[in-house]
Design a protein around this nucleic acid. Structure first.
Length: 203
DNA sequence: CACTAGATTTTCT
DNA sequence: GAAAATCTAGTGG
């Protein structure tokens, strides 16, 4: 059976910051064995390319780890960090131009039992409200690196009719001072599944 | 509630 | 050998 509403390649072959904002509200689908886990993307961050974004893995050019950021848009970029966490990105821009959107938080919609199994928590609010939590609860690791997000498979992203929410904006989380002035974190205003509520970043 | 420190291993310099 | 796009537990107010 064909999947309907999957975001096409063209959605991702655009400016990274635009793609990031537009990914809010979209539906992430993770199939694992017989189970299917679904969540609404409620928080993202944009990371740009070589020489233009000091906070980006791609800032100093192509390396083994960041290769997916330079490759075709619409694929997963999964990396391991802090000795115990995986982070999930969607790649952007044209081939040769690096870019990726870090998916930071999900509002779980379906397959919650499986998610709780993968990441036991006391409250569902705590299930996928952070980049490391999200990958843990969906069973995502580097085996899913470079998976095509525009085709039905273990991991893909669908469009949604959900609109009308307010978009919040702030500096990115967890980076140092470099690039902190760029307000490239976007989130669904007021959504309880966003990783940090009082995102104080005023000008 | 706010803040600090430790865990733990891959990747790059 | 150092740092890392994080998380949790622990301390103190």
């Amino acid at each position: 059976m064909r999947e309907r509403g999957i975001l096409p390649r063209g959605f991702y072959v655009r400016d990274t910051v635009e793609v990031a904002e537009d990914l809010l509200g979209k539906i992430l689908v993770r199939t694992k064995g017989r189970s299917r886990m679904i969540g609404r993307i409620v928080e993202v961050e944009a990371y740009k390319g070589q020489g233009e974004d000091p906070a980006s893995h791609a800032f100093r050019g192509l390396t083994r780890r960041n290769a997916p950021m330079f490759a075709e848009a619409g694929h997963a970029y999964v990396y391991f960090t802090y000795g115990n966490h995986y982070c999930l990105n969607a790649t952007t821009e044209r081939v040769g131009t690096a870019g990726a959107v870090l998916i930071r938080a999900l509002q779980p919609l379906k397959g919650l039992e499986m998610m709780r199994k993968l990441r036991p928590v006391d409250s569902d609010l705590n299930l996928a409200s952070g980049p490391g939590k999200l990958t843990k609860s969906l069973g995502i690791d580097t085996r899913l690196n470079e998976v095509d997000l525009t085709k039905p498979g273990p991991l893909f992203i669908k469009d949604t009719e959900m609109r009308g929410f307010l978009v919040g904006r702030s500096g990115r989380v967890g980076i140092g001072e470099l690039g902190a002035d760029r307000l490239w974190r976007f989130y669904v205003e007021g959504n309880p599944y966003v990783s940090r509520k009082s995102s104080v970043k005023r000008a």
